[in-house]
Amino acid sequence: MTLTLSEAESRQIMAEYDIFVSPFVTGSTTNEVVAAAQAHPAVTFPLVAKLCGRAIAHKTERGLVRLNVNDETALRQACDELLAKSRPEDGDVELLVSTMVAGSRELIAGLVDDPQFGMTVMVGIGGVLAEAIADVSFRLAPITEVDAAEMIDDLATQRLLGPFRGEPQADRTALIQMLVALSRLPINEPSVRSADLNPLILVDGKPVAVDALVEVADDTDLIDA
């Protein structure tokens, strides 16, 4: 059996593996999360506020994500509204407040355990249309830097990786390092069964995950289950 971690727990694991996630804080009440946001130097307006929990899989569909929160008043209001939307079946929930990073290009990366080939790592064109576009490239984990570079080259939408709408070209070295690190995660932590980083926004060309979802075996010692 597996257990899906909350976004905050998933982000924590990614950060430990040197995978860039947007700066974030969490709290169980509005006051707690606002105080944490104010205390964190990298969590700056505009912000994103979300309601997270292990049982909440589809935040966007349920309206549990507030973008472009521009001041403290708006943040407090967003947090109060999000908490009011929680349902009994959501179990333990928490507020997650993160810096809203700027970038028009969204990639996706992830891990999936294939029934024939075992743990695989993926990169592709991300965002809400990721599954419809299906421009993705897989390799068997773990991968080398050469494998990662070829994965990126295999994507059909190469123009998205060049200079784009005033933004610099994708930092391939940073992408390669992220993919290699991601592919090592399930090798070093075998209880990790799958992962989604979607979207990975290219910020100054570098990939920054603004959402993360990790699935672990329920006997994992990665977190207090």
Binding site: I108, V112, M122, V136, S137, F138, R139, A195
Partner: peptide, 25 residues
């Protein structure tokens, strides 16, 4: 085709896409 999967990555991991990646690797 695509497997039923909770994650985007899982939904995109068709047998063909994984086999193709294995070949390239």
């Amino acid at each position: 085709g695509a497997r039923a999967a909770a994650s985007h990555t899982g939904a995109l991991a068709t047998d063909d896409a994984v086999f193709d990646g294995m070949c390239r690797q």
